[in-house]
Design a protein around this nucleic acid. Sequence first.
DNA 1: TTGTAAGCGTTATCAA
DNA 2: TTGATAACGCTTACAA
Lengths: 347, 347
Amino acid sequence: MNIGEIARRAGVSRSTVSYALSGKRPVATSTRRRIQDVINELGYRPNATARALKEGRTRTIGLVIPPAGNRLTHMQLDFVASVVEAAARVDLDVLLSPSGGGHDRSFERLVSESRVDGVILMEIRLEDPRVGRLQAAGLPFVGIGHTAGDHQMSWIDVDYAGLVQHCVRHLADLGHRRVALVTRSRELISAGYGPARRASEGFEAAVAERGLDGVEVPCGDDARSGQECVVALLRSHPDLTAVTTINEAALPGIERALADSGIEVPYDFSVTGVAAKTWAEDFRPPLTAADVPALDMGEKAVSLLVERIAAPDTPPRHILLTPPISLRSSTAAAPTGRPSRVSRATR
Amino acid sequence: MNIGEIARRAGVSRSTVSYALSGKRPVATSTRRRIQDVINELGYRPNATARALKEGRTRTIGLVIPPAGNRLTHMQLDFVASVVEAAARVDLDVLLSPSGGGHDRSFERLVSESRVDGVILMEIRLEDPRVGRLQAAGLPFVGIGHTAGDHQMSWIDVDYAGLVQHCVRHLADLGHRRVALVTRSRELISAGYGPARRASEGFEAAVAERGLDGVEVPCGDDARSGQECVVALLRSHPDLTAVTTINEAALPGIERALADSGIEVPYDFSVTGVAAKTWAEDFRPPLTAADVPALDMGEKAVSLLVERIAAPDTPPRHILLTPPISLRSSTAAAPTGRPSRVSRATR
DNA sequence: TTGTAAGCGTTATCAA
DNA sequence: TTGATAACGCTTACAA
């Protein structure tokens, strides 16, 4: 079933069918109807591959996700979902490419075989070879996340430094003096993962600014790690009264560890951080947190990309989001005086 | 940059370049090296679109996922991740298509524009129009999940009926007489969602077989719903001593509701179900459950599809998985005699 | 061992 | 208002 077959049955030339479909040239109403009838009858749709070859564009974008081995976080999942959805709204298909672990056939296919009109790169590292690769290929792309140096690229990101700083200030305002940052996994950090690195910066800045005692601990992306991490933290820092985190997957574990130690949030201890809304609202008590608008971000990334595809020589654009901190119920004034938390926990 | 350019620079014909690349015809070593040098220098890779047009296949498969609106469950996410990974291993790209909510441009593009060589259909309904659509289009496909009638299609699924039956029998063996099934959302059920429907069947069968009192409640796919659901259940059925579930996302809420009521699992109450391993292990205490091998399933789905693409006229194959129930710590003998749970909870 | 040329299914230019 | 035809970049039969 192809355009020639339709043309034959409608008794017209292929070009007329093409024009009847695209409307790029007037077609007599009678002819058009005849063609449309045949098309409806046979359920014809033009072959996307042939069209792509002819038009020089695929109407497809690539979405580069972290390799499947490391299970995706909820936030990443929201990115994927919203990118796919937003792309579908403008009739773009999305080709998925798991990448990030070094040599990568799938990513290479994407950039060098003209399979896509542009690429959205998730989980960018501070130094990321894929950025150079895409630039060399001359393929339009945007990052969800951004590199260390300002490479000439469009991106959208969350201002982790600023947000963590806000969180710590909020805790300081409440009288907390010793606070911890529960960050992402050691591997991610040493791989140069931007959000972790930038969260550290914000944390250190705020701690210095307010003269607090700050302790920072890496933590795996799961409940168990969160739990272990907080248990260790409570043991090693008995005077800790607050924690802030950028590790949403650790939140259920953080909740557990505190509950197990007989610590009541927020009266004995405050918790805050930056996380997707669901996680914040699922925390007990509901978490005072900067809600990462992951769904918006995917959508905006698609807009940015569409823009770049349309006008590749336009200067790149950056969107740095600083969502406000939603005050929920997990932060309160630091507990005053002794009995310290330790005695309470063991009483 | 195309094959003609390479040919020109290497001083050979385009076909020679093509053959040098594919190895489908011998090429003199010297010529081959000359060609390879040019290719390396320019970083040439054949245009995938042109190749697809010529070869009549795209080396791409479509993955039809539920629409992004309903946030994907972890299990669904594992399917996606494993499908993408497995496809990448055999050098297939994956085109994502959100579908399921009625009229669907993205799905239609997939099936009727020859964008893909085959389709993996997630979240199949008992009556699913997309199955007929794919069959009419003559596009190879496999389901993760299966319809009610045995349409002529390949699929892989988990035996929810059998597994829930096992779970209930296990509870009955432990002396539980009044048990509940926490299933999926009311919407999913009325939309004809297979796993929910089949879980019901298994539940009813086991309850009848063992002469138990069974109660079945729908529940949204999130912690809060799980919590509300169990709270309501405890109130309406004071003599309930066990619950089984196929709603993994509700597990954290189930855990909370029980803890809040002062119920200790497994001494006062048993919990079991079918869930991805992570969820089961994250439950407190670790959940006795049938672990759904979501990662395997994605991989097997890809194999099935590759098979069907290669031999479309082969009779379809079905894989119904019945993973064993992993005995962890959330089930124990039913509490004996009074004081009943109610009095304990309020004591 | 290599080259020529047809053809995959479109779109769009040029003629009529 | 419509038709013939070239072209997109590739693979592969057929020739040499």
